[in-house]
Design a protein around this nucleic acid. Structure first.
Lengths: 253, 253
DNA sequence: GCTTGACCTTGACGCTACGTCAAGGTATAT
DNA sequence: ATATACCTTGACGTAGCGTCAAGGTCAAGC
């Protein structure tokens, strides 16, 4: 079966302009051209187009897609993982935006008592600061821990001390965990202390404590490899160990 | 104080090209031009630029900003609210994208037993369906339940990023609550929106949603002083208010 | 064989918000 | 006078097409 450009367009829901563009950038070339210069596509191109659309659906850039569909021995996995990171970074930026917009809205609505000018100045300053922070972290790496930490701090709207307290506590959890894991016993005092620190740490971000939630989170620590990696950084097997300790901890009392 | 283009650029961190561009599109014109044709900006323009940058920071398009800063009697609130909705819609699209990418990654890793072709076909179909759903729901309303549910589904396998997402959502609940409580009306849109955010937030830690459980938790918010203290931090009486809002929310429909 | 209408071609501008030369004039200090 | 820093306008490039525009081709009906 052969298709003219419009036939193919109707089949796939892609505009003829787009198909011509894909031809132009060497992403998808027709099988041949008719004597009058018409583009003729065959089944192979239909299949290839489906591949292309698949990746386009995932938000990849056409240049990347070109590489993927042309190089048969391309590392899809890595490309996708890379792409995922980019998307997540984007989402974090969006989150920042949304928060700022919401702040602005509520400030505009709520505190008309405040001198408008003054308010504005405050916002301006804040945004400038935000900007610098963001910019700085962008330079550091694509989206390193810093950005995450900073946006967290900002978002949490914690006071600075609180935030430091929070991160300190996190460090203490890690340190304590590294220590406890050496005992090899999740029911040991050291391990149970770690679990308790972990509970306190949770208190910063969760409004309430429940054993079930705590245990649920612990399960996630082993189920999700990214989480696991975070804790295993402290010591190999630490995520598993922490899970066990928390399970015991939540069964207590 | 008067500024040449570069002076102004250094003052505000904006490139001269950008300033020239803003002149070109009539967003920010210099106060006057020197005899040699140099752009001269005065204090007024500095202030206006700050306004512009403020809105730009919020992700508004320059055309919109032009309207806002030129029409003195413009409805900021509505424009911002509109913008917020757009951002949220974008974020949900991003969430879907991320989900799809993750699905693809895990499928590639996990089920290499499946014939590649077959797998692909499935995905294609799935993506098409997703697409239609997405498109459909976008038409139905700005962001219908489907999208919310879909993004919820993803959250159930919480990863590290998702955990951060979770904490951010929590902050949004608080911000929204602080805003809503000022209306004094638990049935107001703002209050109901807060309740809805709260529901979404629950989705992170509860395997399934039920109105009863939701309402039960709300009751606890006033019964237990620790809960109350947490929410009252946002605004005195906020816990009570949130309870009332959730009760109304769960009675809906 | 001619007309009509549907389909095809290439070419080029438009969109967003600038970055980045390029070619040439201006201000200031030495 | 010269070096240097600064200014101007003009124009191309970015991603992924949408949207004319001007003109050639094909099948069908007369």
């Amino acid at each position: 079966m052969e298709y003219t450009i419009q036939k193919l367009g109707n089949l796939t829901g892609i505009s003829t302009r787009t198909l011509r563009y894909y031809d132009e950038i060497d992403l998808l070339k027709p099988a041949r051209k008719s004597s009058a210069g018409y583009r003729i596509y065959s089944q192979q191109e239909v299949d290839k187009l489906q591949h292309i659309l698949f990746y386009r659906e995932l938000g990849l850039e056409l240049e990347q897609i070109k590489t993927i569909v042309n190089d048969s021995d391309f590392d899809y996995a890595e490309a996708l993982e890379e792409h995922r990171k980019k998307l997540i970074a984007k989402r974090m930026q969006l989150d920042l935006l949304i928060t700022n917009v919401e702040k602005t809205i509520s400030a505009k609505k709520g505190e008309s008592t405040m001198a408008d000018k003054e308010k504005f100045e405050g916002f301006k300053q804040k945004l400038v600061d935000d900007n610098e922070q963001q910019y700085g972290s962008e330079i550091r790496s694509e989206y390193g821990d810093e950005l995450v930490d900073q946006s967290n701090a900002k978002m949490l709207n914690m006071s600075e001390e609180q935030y430091q307290e929070f991160t300190r506590l996190e460090q203490r959890v890690l340190a304590s965990l590294a220590d406890a894991v050496k005992t090899g016993d999740p029911s040991s005092d050291a391990a149970q202390q770690t679990a308790d620190l972990h509970r306190q740490w949770l208190g910063f971000t969760w409004p309430s404590y429940s054993k079930e939630a705590h245990k649920g989170l612990a399960e996630m620590y082993v189920a999700d490899e990214r989480f696991a990696a975070y804790y295993d950084k402290a010591h190999p097997g630490a995520a598993q160990f922490l899970r066990d300790a928390i399970v015991i901890y939540t069964q207590q009392e």
